[in-house]
Structure formats: structure tokens, C-alpha cells
Design a protein around this nucleic acid. Sequence first.
DNA 1: CACCCCTAAGTTGTCTGACAACATTCGAAT
DNA 2: ATTCGAATGTTGTCAGACAACTTAGGGGTG
Lengths: 273, 273
Amino acid sequence: MGAVKGSERGPRLSVVVAGQLEAWISEQGLKAGAQLPTEKVLCERFGVSRAVIREAISRLKADGCVMTRQGSGAYVAARPGQVTFRLVRGAANGEGTEDSAISDREISDIFELRYLVEAGAAELAALRRSPQELERMRAALERMAVALQTGTDAHTDDDAFHVAVAAATHNPQIERFQAFMGQQFSDSRAPTWNEAGHRSGHARDSQAEHVRIFEAIAAGDAAAARAAATAHLAGAVRRLGLDERRWGALDAMKREHAPDARNEVLHGVEEGR
Amino acid sequence: MGAVKGSERGPRLSVVVAGQLEAWISEQGLKAGAQLPTEKVLCERFGVSRAVIREAISRLKADGCVMTRQGSGAYVAARPGQVTFRLVRGAANGEGTEDSAISDREISDIFELRYLVEAGAAELAALRRSPQELERMRAALERMAVALQTGTDAHTDDDAFHVAVAAATHNPQIERFQAFMGQQFSDSRAPTWNEAGHRSGHARDSQAEHVRIFEAIAAGDAAAARAAATAHLAGAVRRLGLDERRWGALDAMKREHAPDARNEVLHGVEEGR
DNA sequence: CACCCCTAAGTTGTCTGACAACATTCGAAT
DNA sequence: ATTCGAATGTTGTCAGACAACTTAGGGGTG
């Protein structure tokens, strides 16, 4: 492993060194707790200054695979693997890769992961929801209903509804994951709630699906809740014009459980307050 | 906002500054794309050197809420929220918090999240698996079968099997999430594959559940695959002695689909090569 | 007046050197 | 043999400087 220069033309010397250092660690087969070379040694080995080495190590620390103790040294963290999960591997790698357009395929993949979690979350929510949590969902639904009539944006309330469903599972991990997913691409909810979305009826359709999810959860019908959540995700994919082919099979699955268990727990939500 | 000294006696000045800076950003209500003060200004404001400021900003960059452009400045990232998802909020916060024992409740919660993803992944895998991916699962199964006879550890192959299932969804996001979850707590698989696990039959039971998952996926029976995956997770919870109460309802659900669609695609896996 | 190039100032990225805080080690005194 | 302490090495922090880059503004040209 010689100098870095030349091989990588990329900017941000520190991230290059961080990558090479991480590769070197796994390549050397260093186990948890193993001590890394000192900063001075690394400086010589990579041919960069200590500032760069420190910044690279700082990156690895933030990534969780390295830990440092002042006066002692740097060590491989106990959990050497990835401690964090990020969507869309392509982006968020270097620095500000805002312009890296996410492909439709990637969005479709993420929606599918959403499907897995949200369908299951709706299922569990139907089994465990408390009155307070139902009220929280209803409040979000109501805000969306108002926005539907006034033609305003309500993607925040959309997100809040889904988080409320996840919260009703009484599982903080699921709730946090849902919040994470929602925050990640609130952009994908924009086409539903902007002017075009209101005009084309996307907002109305989405809201109807939300109501169906809520009703199933309120009724305690886990299968119907799963089906309604699946239908909602499939509808979102359709509205975004993504690849529908992959979702055909899931549509078929959800149709096993007809959503006839709808009851009248909530009234006045559809027409907004 | 005055100097930092005194208020926080804690070590790692940079992480303190990082926290204060992050708090300052949200407190100022800076929106995505807003420019942060220059490093020189921040040095004066926090009363620290530029190295500390740079390390603090580096942390925020790694966290994803800040982005820098050389020659221009530092900006609030487009997605101000969390870009990464980490399990177990308590740990992995500061440095080496190895000793923070994870509660049974947290493990149970994480298993439930695993259930959501793995059950859905098995479902999708049954619909999309290719011969190559089936072979990959079979190879992992075979390695586990060998380990079952020799009484050796195979938790790595256990993980590999589940990742292979996730890979069969043809969805890299799901695969990466499964790999993430598996890596996170490979510890939880140890009680299945250590000596005690072999003696108590836990390894055998787990392997039988794996085979059932594989057979359902090989047969292309999505419902059976979901049921088998659910049964596997429920079995794992039982073996770990976690709270079984929460899993009763899920067990009931899986029983809707009797796993009678088992066929004989694979032979010789149960008895190990 | 509109447009383009080019200079200048400002900002982040990197380098260098030094000192402080802390950990480890090894020798000396008890 | 045990304990204490100094020496040494490592990371954390500080200070100053230059390089690479971006941006804004001025001057020239059409």
C-alpha cells in the first residue's frame, strides 16, 4: 500500500484515506479490540499529514467501526460491522451528493422495504392500538382531510399518520424505523399533495387509503390492516408512475382479505372536521 | 452563546461542540441549504481552535445533517433529519459503550422488527427466487447441517442463509437491511449454536425451521414462506427465553396457512450432504 | 446596455509544528 | 516482592500558514 496520490483523483483526501484505512483493517483481519497503528505511522504510510489522518479516523469513529482512547491509541470497535443503516448506498457516501438523481428502480426498492415494514406494522397496530394512539391517527387524518378541501400541502401530516401507526405497535424500534424512512424521502409524498396531486385526485385517493388503514386498525382486524397498508403502498407506487409490474403479485395477495370489516368508528373524517 | 468551558467537564471537546452546534442549528431554525457561519466565526463563538470546529463539523457531516463545499462554506444538508438508522438508541452514542446491557424488552422489539422484514422478504423471495439464489440458500443450509452433526458453530452460516433469502428478493435495499440486522446482533444467534444449543436441541430446531423456509421459497409458495419465517422468528424468541406473550397473536396468524405445500425439491439437506 | 473574462477576496482543505492531557511501562526505593 | 514515580509514547488541542476552490465584482468588448 503506497502513497495515495495519483490513484484516486477524487477530492476530499480524508475520505479517500478513510476508505483505504477501513479496507486495510478488514484486509488485515483485525478483530474487535485490536489496536490500530499510531497516527504518526499512518501519516507516513499514507503520505499525508496528521490532520488528514485524524479526520479519516474521525469518520471511522462516527461510522462506529473504530474507537479511540486518549493517550492509548485507536482500536477496532467491538461491533466491527456497520452500526448504522443508510438507504441509497450511492448517495451519502462522499459529501454533498444532492444532485445524484435516485433512479426509479431505487425508489421502487425503497418502497418495497417500506411495504414490508408498514404492512407488518399495520398488522401489529391492529392488535395493540390503544385509544390514545387511535386518536393520534385520527387527528392526522383530520388534518389531511382539511388540507384535501383547502387544497394545501399536508405531507407532514401524511408522515405523522404513518408514524402514529408505527407507534401503535408499542415497539419503539419500529416507530423509529418508520420515522427514519418517512424522513428519508418526504419528497416522494410531494407529488401527492402539491397542486397537481390535488387536481389529479392523487391526494383524494391517498386519503381514502389512509382511512381504510385506520378503520382496519380501529376494528382490530390485523389481516385487513395489512391488506389496506399494502394497497396504500401499491397505490403510491402507481401514483408515482413507478414500475408496477413488481407489485402485481402483492396486489393479488392483499386481495385475499376483502376489506369488508370496515365499521363506523370514525365519522366526519372524510368530510373534514 | 458563550464559551464552552466549565459547563461541560466531559472529555472530547469536539463532540461537545458538535452537540452545541447541532442544537444551535435547530434552535436557529435553519432550513435545508442554509449556510452556516464560517469556521473562523465558529472558532470565536465557541472559544476553541479551528481543529476542534473542523472535527465537530466532520461529525455532523458524518451524521448527514451538514454538508460542506470547499471554497464556499458549510450548509445544512438537504435532508436535515437522520440519514442513518441505528438500533438500540442507548448504546452507540458516545464511544465504547460496550457495557450497556441491552434489555430483554429491547431485544424482543428488535426481533419483532426482524419479523416484519424477514417474513416479507421470505414472501417476496418465494415469488422471485432464481436457481442461483436457491443454490446459495441450500449451500448455507448444508453448512449448517454439517455443523449440526459435528456440533460446531455455524452462526455465520445462519446469517448467510437469511441474507441469501433477502438477496432472493432482488431488492438490494432489503438485502442490505437484512445484512445490517444480522450483523447487529449476531450475539443472539450464539445460544443456538454453542454447546448448550446443540445439547438442548436448539440448533436442530432452528435448522428444521430453516429447511421449512427454504422449501416454501423453493416451491414458490409465498404464504407458506411467510408462515415459515414467522415460525422461525417465534421459535428464536422462545429459545432465547424472551417474552412470548407478544408473539402469541403472530403465531395464530401464521397458522392460517398450513405449510402443507412442502415438496421435495431438496433432498439430502436434512442429513447433511 | 448586455455579455464575457478576469482579478480579488473569502472559505474550506491540507500541511507543519508545538504543547497539553492521558496511558503505559519500567526502574528505583521501600 | 510490592509500590511509587518518572520517562516515554499516544491522542487531543492549539496556532499559523499555504493551496485549492468558489463567489462576487470590475473592467473590457460586442
